Simulated scan of single mutants.
Amino acid sequence: MSDNEDFAVGFIGLGNMGAPMAHRLLDWPGGLVVCDMRPEALQPFADGGATPAKTPAEAAEQCGVVSVVVLDDAQVRAVVAGPEGILRTAAPGTVIAVHSTIADATAVQLAAECAERGVEFVDAPISGGAPAAQRGGLAVMVGGSPAAFEKVRAPFSRFASMLVHAGAVGAGTQMKLARNLLHFIAFSAAAEAQRLAETAGLDITELGKVVRHSDSHTGGPGSIMLRDTTDPVEPGDFWFPIFSHVRDLGEKDLSLALELGQRLGVELPLARQALGDLGTGLGVGPGHIAKEKS
């Protein structure tokens, strides 16, 4: 057993996400301690060799790292700082890792409370869903000190294939919120595309298959997120001809989609905004089609 695996890991919250994450820690060299309000959630882990705990405080007194996967800010506060919370028993040097998506301000406040006890706090939201957790393929965005990041690296690597040290406490949550902003705006755009296709008499289940197939090859929206700044792209920059080409294709196709929507009587507000914003967002400015339509 290496030095960074000689501590027990606690896991609080064994729901749809927490259970598959914790399952991958069952053979953690230092041992796994689990806590959940539901006895039926604890039993499979106890059968697998984990130590059940009745409260977060009971779990924390045995562990060097405690992961938390509960519903919201209120539950996180209760688990960390409540009467039977982790801070009641956590030893100095313990790292509390919250994987729930909470407010970044909540993370900063809890980190300050933890620091008073000599305990480290990291906000470590996750991306990828339960299937990724089951196969150890999650992305984890960590906000916290370099020392805390190093301590959680080994246990987190059991359920994640990508670990990003986003910055200080709160940065992990901020990165997750930016990632999910893209996710849910894309869902709204998908709904708009389905309305257009359905009104045109197309099979929208087949459209969905095409989208998933093509995105698996192109990478979807992430395929343009390759620069380290959102500043305008200078004409001599490597990216200028690439993003100008993307803009020109995008403006053409968005314009054609808007013309189709107008003929069919389908409002496409996201497409209209995208036509005006695409070139500027890419950093190369609007193309001739966007300028003509403005």
Rank of each mutant, 00 (worst) to 15 (best):
F11D: 01
F149C: 05
D123M: 03
T94M: 01
A271W: 03
G287E: 00
T280N: 11
G167F: 14
T229K: 07
A148W: 08
L275G: 00
G285P: 08
Q62T: 06
K176Y: 04
G201E: 03
L26T: 15
G220D: 15
V246G: 13
D6F: 02
G261P: 04
I242H: 06
A139Y: 12
A46R: 14
P125S: 10
H99L: 03
L177R: 09
I185D: 13
V68I: 12
A147K: 05
A148P: 10
T89V: 11
G265Q: 15
L256E: 14
M21Q: 09
G283L: 08
H213Q: 12
A190Y: 03
L282H: 05
V69K: 00
V70E: 09
E292L: 12
A60S: 04
H183R: 12
G236R: 12
H245I: 08
R117T: 04
D248W: 02
A147E: 08
G18E: 08
N16M: 08
G279R: 03
V68E: 00
T230C: 13
H23G: 14
H183Y: 15
L254H: 08
T173P: 07
A50Q: 07
G82W: 05
E120R: 01
T51E: 15
I96G: 02
G265V: 10
I185C: 10
L163S: 02
L25V: 14
V233H: 00
A59D: 06
L25Y: 04
A124K: 01
G236T: 08
V34P: 01
E292T: 01
A91E: 13
G30D: 08
R195E: 14
T51W: 11
V68C: 04
D277R: 12
A133M: 04
E234Q: 05
F240M: 05
G85N: 15
P235L: 11
A91M: 07
S67Q: 09
S244G: 03
D3I: 09
E40A: 13
A197R: 10
F7A: 07
Q109N: 11
A189Q: 10
R158P: 05
P125M: 02
G222V: 09
V122S: 02
G49D: 06
D237L: 01
D36R: 09
V122K: 00
V98M: 01
A57I: 10
G222F: 15
M37A: 14
L110H: 06
R135Q: 06
P44L: 15
A154I: 03
H165R: 13
A148D: 14
F121D: 00
I12T: 01
R77Q: 11
A112G: 14
A178Y: 07
G208V: 00
G236Y: 13
P52G: 11
A8Q: 00
A59F: 02
G250W: 14
H245M: 13
L202H: 06
G170V: 04
K151M: 06
K151S: 03
T55S: 04
S157A: 09
V164G: 05
G143V: 13
N180S: 10
L282W: 13
E58V: 07
F7K: 13
G201K: 04
